[in-house]
């Protein structure tokens, strides 16, 4: 597997589902395996270790609605490891320790505006979905993800 995109959140809680929407938009594109998820689970470590790059996409609370942040991730043994909610860093650590391989990894967050019951995204978040999808298509299909991709889009 070349690139794995794990977009997670609750699509019934407005902008919390933005990761889910991004992953859905990327499904079926050559070179990308995109998986919309409610939450990160232990078995995703098995999926992660087979990828060259892994991109986590999640909603954020802090910042201006629609703001997009990209950060490089590293394995983190001390992150959140509850049964039905694991942090990306913990999954990367599990992939590294169990399967001996941890792909390069980035977390993309999009700041949400509305987290109430809703199946639609707010306008600024919807706008950011277009940017993020375009960015990921350019980066992943072109295999341009690099270790220094931190920052804003």
């Amino acid at each position: 597997m070349n690139a794995l995109v794990l977009g997670y959140g609750n699509p019934l809680r407005g902008d919390d589902g933005v990761g889910w929407v991004v992953a859905e938009r990327l499904q079926g594109m050559a070179g990308i395996t995109a998986v919309p998820l409610h939450q990160l689970l232990p078995e995703h470590a098995d999926l992660i270790h087979t990828a060259v790059h892994v991109i986590f996409v999640d909603a954020a609370v802090a910042g201006e609605p629609g703001a997009v942040q990209v950060q490089t991730l590293a394995p983190d043994r001390h992150g959140l490891a509850a049964s039905h909610q694991m942090s990306p860093g913990v999954l990367l650590a599990m992939a590294a320790e169990l399967y001996g391989r941890c792909p390069t990894a980035h977390l993309i967050t999009i700041t949400g505006q509305n987290f109430a019951y809703s199946e639609t995204l707010s306008p600024p978040v919807q706008e950011s979905v277009y940017q993020v999808v375009g960015f990921l298509v350019a980066q992943l299909i072109g295999e341009l993800v690099s270790e220094d991709a931190n920052g804003r889009i």
Binding site: E97, L98, Y99
Partner: peptide, 25 residues
């Protein structure tokens, strides 16, 4: 006393857990 401790001592046990979760899912 956490999943990483299990992974260090019994990596196959931890892998079996992941595989059986994946099987059901």
């Amino acid at each position: 006393r956490n999943i990483f401790g299990v992974m260090q001592r019994y990596p196959d046990l931890a892998k079996d857990g992941i595989a059986l979760r994946k099987f059901g899912q």
